[in-house]
């Protein structure tokens, strides 16, 4: 990854220097265009002042030769850019039939008991991206690896879903992580508004405390 970025930067600098060289060679041709009046073009003949190359004969020819090779440097817009793109491709697991997660079929050779949700939350594939008619939900307080469920469907990890934009409506939000009691809360998303959810995943005292308790109130903020 680092080497590719370095290569992209080097490529950018090479382009920059090549562009300068080409620019110089282009501007060095400017005096040659000045030779056009020498051939008696209409543009030069209409000019009331004598063209620089149509000089009195008192000027030595060596000076004229010198003008032909003078570089004309013009400072203009200089852009230097470097880019880097990488396509990793869909992840393929030999234990799955098809490309994960585009295939929902289970393999008989692989079974994850934690992966129990039969479906994905709306927006899982398209991403919980911003849209003008959506509302924002900000998750905080949960470990990055905690799994987030919306209406019982898997939505992603808490690390990926710190900010997610959802269509207006009511959702049942659940956040769970191994070794902690799951967090459950009903949230109400309104378009153009931001909802801050502070998840609390307390450690259970015993296995019997794995029954989630209802949260009394929501912690919400609006911009």
């Amino acid at each position: 990854m680092k080497s590719m970025k370095t290569a992209a930067l080097c490529l950018g600098f090479i382009c920059f220097f090549l562009g300068n060289a080409i620019g110089q060679s282009a501007t060095s041709e400017v005096p040659q265009t000045g030779e056009v009046p020498q051939t008696g073009s209409a543009a030069a003949s209409q000019n009331t002042q004598p063209a620089p190359d149509v000089k009195p004969a008192t000027k030595p020819d060596t000076e004229t030769e010198e003008h032909h090779h003078r570089l004309h440097v013009r400072l203009g817009t200089i852009g230097v850019g470097a880019g880097h793109s990488r396509f990793s491709g869909p992840f393929y697991s030999p234990f799955w039939y098809g490309f994960y997660p585009y295939s929902l079929s289970y393999s008989p050779f692989f079974y994850d008991p934690f992966f129990y949700s039969p479906s994905y939350a709306p927006g899982y594939f398209g991403g919980f991206a911003y849209d003008v008619d959506k509302g924002e939900v900000k998750l905080s307080g949960a470990p990055k690896t905690a799994e987030v469920f919306l209406d019982g469907a898997y939505a992603g990890t808490a690390g990926e879903l710190k900010n997610m934009w959802l269509d207006p409506g009511a959702y049942d939000l659940s956040v769970s992580t191994p070794g902690a009691m799951p967090f459950h809360q009903r949230i109400y998303v309104l378009s153009g508004k931001s909802l801050k959810i502070a998840t609390k995943l307390p450690q259970p005292q015993s296995q019997s405390e794995f029954q989630p308790k209802p949260q009394p109130t929501t912690t919400e903020e609006k911009p």
Partner: peptide, 27 residues
Amino acid sequence: MKLRICIAIALMCVLPLSAETPRGTVP
């Protein structure tokens, strides 16, 4: 792994219950 199984089972039991949205607040 047992812990994960317990969480999964607990969530499976709770999520259908959550579909019945209770009204009001917790007294």
